[in-house]
Design a protein around this nucleic acid. Sequence first.
DNA 1: TTCGATAAGTAGATTCGCTACATGTTGCCT
DNA 2: AGGCAACATGTAGCGAATCTACTTATCGAA
Lengths: 108, 108
Amino acid sequence: MKADALRGHLDPMILAVVEHEPLHGYAIMEALLTRSGGELDLPTGTLYPALRRLERAGYLASEWSTVGGRKRRTYQLTSAGQKMLASGKQEWLTFRAVVEGVLRPGQA
Amino acid sequence: MKADALRGHLDPMILAVVEHEPLHGYAIMEALLTRSGGELDLPTGTLYPALRRLERAGYLASEWSTVGGRKRRTYQLTSAGQKMLASGKQEWLTFRAVVEGVLRPGQA
DNA sequence: TTCGATAAGTAGATTCGCTACATGTTGCCT
DNA sequence: AGGCAACATGTAGCGAATCTACTTATCGAA
């Protein structure tokens, strides 16, 4: 999968992963990897800045903790983040329809 | 639809539009608009540079003509472009599976 | 004769995912 | 004991592609 195919789609994906349970960065990476069937293996230089961006934008809130001697920053969805996620899901459906309307991927 | 959702997906869409008939830039814009149900209204500052990029990359070939006093540059798919389009369609399916695996857009 | 549609382009800004680097802990294997 | 994989977080700077805004030009209709 090409690098910048992700552009503009990563944010809702991150929000989706913490929708039902708060997770720390590393766990978010693992969740994305699992949910994508091993396809989405984000470099830390992508994920961590993205998380800070989402927090700065008010979609995530974070809290530090220490588990087994390791420091974790755990992120949870804010109510603004919930709205963002909902509209992100909707936008995805629109986007998918647009691409498939043009691409007609069923046809060889 | 957000601006950079398109990132990395525009190229195969352009190639798809000229798959069965060569078209000039303006007609490609219209075809994208039509096929996308009015959603994909590209600014010329996006489309024309993209076409030159695709030609430079060897996926499109162009030819000038004059129709009704207006100059047109008509683009057609090269054989490299055909391969690119085919793999682009395949990549789209992968990408869609990745996003939907993470997003689970059916769930509220 | 002005305006919308047709037609093609460039310059420059912005954004964000990437590579590469930096730091530190824990626990297993040899 | 030493080393290495996994766990955990982060920054600096690059590059590519889409965008806004602008330019130029023709044609037909109001």
